[in-house]
């Protein structure tokens, strides 16, 4: 990103802040299933409010309804930034109950989960369209970021001109490749972290305060 672009972004962020309404920004946590969105949402919520947002799981599509935590005050450099966090269901273009069968889930329950997950994706897309002021896009840095879902969602976010941060999650794992994530979306800021282990959370909060204040 060029110097001028950086400057422009900084200025626009400052002016946005000056003229912002009192309402806290609503920040949507988006990404594909199993990227660690809920783990991150819980980490942020626990760090600043003491509460969790939702259950974490290795089973994909564990989050099938958007969950919101309001009034999360993040203190940075002597200032306080208040945001509402929306943890959204993982976005996918296909949902198949068979993927749940590997996780010791009965067929009937798997079919129900599948349907709920599908509804969850629809809900997530709705929120993206109307109800979020900024996006934290979470990616599993051990997997290939060049996917249809990622490309499409980032494209939508860009078309809405929403501020977005790319979080390369799971850097505690050996296979993590932060550069691959950064290279996939070079026009956006990529922040490495491990939401599970709490690695690099200081930078995470710095960036959240900078982008979404």
């Amino acid at each position: 990103m060029g110097l001028l672009t950086n400057l422009k972004d900084s200025v626009s962020r400052v002016t946005d802040r000056l003229f912002a309404s009192e309402d806290p920004k609503r920040i949507g946590i988006y990404g594909p299933p199993n990227a660690g969105k809920t783990t991150l949402a819980n980490r942020i919520a626990r760090d600043w409010t003491g509460d969790a947002i939702g259950p974490e799981s290795h089973v994909p599509h564990e989050t099938r309804r958007a969950r919101r935590k309001e009034g999360v005050d993040i203190e940075r450099n002597g200032q306080s930034v208040t945001i509402d966090i929306v943890d959204t269901p993982g976005v996918a273009t296909k949902v198949d109950y068979k993927e749940f069968l590997d996780h010791d889930i009965e067929k009937d329950d798997a079919i129900r989960r599948s349907r709920e997950a599908t509804e969850g994706v629809a809900e997530a897309m709705h929120w993206l369209r109307e109800d979020v002021d900024g996006v934290i896009y979470v990616l599993d840095s051990t997997t290939d970021p060049f996917t249809q879902v990622n490309t499409m969602l980032i494209g939508i976010i860009e078309s809405r001109d929403l501020p977005v941060l790319i979080f390369a999650n799971k850097i505690d794992l050996d296979q993590a490749d932060i550069d691959r994530v950064a290279d996939a979306f070079p026009e956006h800021e990529t922040v490495p972290l491990s939401a599970l282990e709490g690695d690099n959370m200081d930078e995470v909060y710095d960036k959240i305060a900078e982008y979404f204040a």
Binding site: D96, Y97, K98, I111, T118, M125, I156
Partner: peptide, 12 residues
């Protein structure tokens, strides 16, 4: 039953 394909742009 239990298998869906989603058109993200349509949903959006």
């Amino acid at each position: 039953p239990g298998e869906y394909e989603l058109n993200l742009m349509e949903l959006y």
